[in-house]
């Protein structure tokens, strides 16, 4: 099954590039995304601690902290486990991704109060990730680039960083009809992204504080706003490690039930 994914502001693929790539020729959109893809793949093997703050349209604010673990497998396969630590109501709530390829993956969630692991239907990967303005997909790994078409719209500077402006259009039906991404030329991470439903802008994200960790460019701050609902989510990475090489049994449903312990 073709399972889409876009990871634009991904916690896992919080963008990145090991080396600055200087382009001596005009790049195509696909070439730009090959670079982005390469950085994301490298970032898959990781552990991170982050704080997510949700703002509702009335000004209400809800904070939560989480820990995420990732591991790459053979070919395009990878696994991700995310566990919430705070607030107490959400402690040990977690979710697990098993991707057999960049196009095919399974998702499960665990809720301690019910002591149940629940499967999340794969078709809802564009849905909001539990009330945040990020989608399940944003928490996944790199996407299958063959599922999209790319077009360079121009070049602009964002946050003092020169960027390619690329229009990405999914070939299969998604919640959005296209998105426009501002990809930093030297880092191959998103600095800004705008999702459109036809001509209407419905989601917009900004990324900043890009640091190089273990050679991987990582934006430590990100914000995504849903223009339709007025909701906004800030994400701040507090700590990140790459090349962690966690064992496979960290990414099982049993481990999900034990909050990765």
């Amino acid at each position: 099954m073709n399972k889409p994914g876009i990871g634009t502001c991904s916690v896992l693929a919080l963008a990145i590039s090991l080396f600055s790539v200087t382009c001596s020729h005009a790049m195509s959109g696909r070439e730009v995304y090959d670079k982005v893809h390469e950085i994301r793949q490298k970032a898959l093997d990781h552990k991170l601690e982050a704080t997510m703050v949700l703002f509702d349209k009335g000004g209400g604010k809800r904070s939560r902290t989480l820990v995420g673990y990732g591991k790459t497998g053979e070919n395009e396969s990878y696994k991700v486990l995310v566990v919430f630590n705070t607030p107490p109501d959400l402690k040990d709530v977690g979710f697990l991704i098993h991707a057999r390829s960049f196009a095919e993956r399974d998702l499960w969630a665990y809720f301690p109060e019910y002591k149940r692991v629940r499967r999340i239907p794969t078709t809802s990967q564009d849905d909001s990730f539990f009330g945040s303005d990020l989608s399940y997909d944003d928490f996944g790994g790199p996407s299958n680039l063959d599922d999209y078409s790319f077009k360079i719209l121009g070049e602009e500077t964002v946050d003092a960083k020169p960027c390619y402006v690329v229009e990405v259009t999914p070939k299969i039906r998604r919640k959005y009809t296209r998105y426009v991404a501002w990809v930093a030329k030297d880092l191959w991470v998103h600095m800004k992204v705008q999702y459109y439903q036809d001509k209407e802008l419905y989601r917009e994200g900004y990324f900043s504080d890009v640091r190089i960790i273990d050679g991987i460019p990582t934006p430590f701050k990100g914000a995504m706003e849903n223009r339709k609902t007025g909701h906004k989510t800030d994400l701040a990475i507090e700590n990140v490690q790459y090349n962690t090489r966690f064992p496979d049994d960290l990414f099982t449903q049993r481990s999900l039930e034990r909050a990765g312990k």
Binding site: D56, L90, E113
Partner: peptide, 24 residues
């Protein structure tokens, strides 16, 4: 998939869907 609403999109005003799911 069956009914016309979702707890995680614009068809509902649910400030914290994760909390909704996590608490009985």
């Amino acid at each position: 998939q069956i009914r016309d609403y979702s707890i995680t999109d614009e068809s509902a005003d649910i400030p914290d869907p994760l909390l909704f799911l996590a608490r009985s």
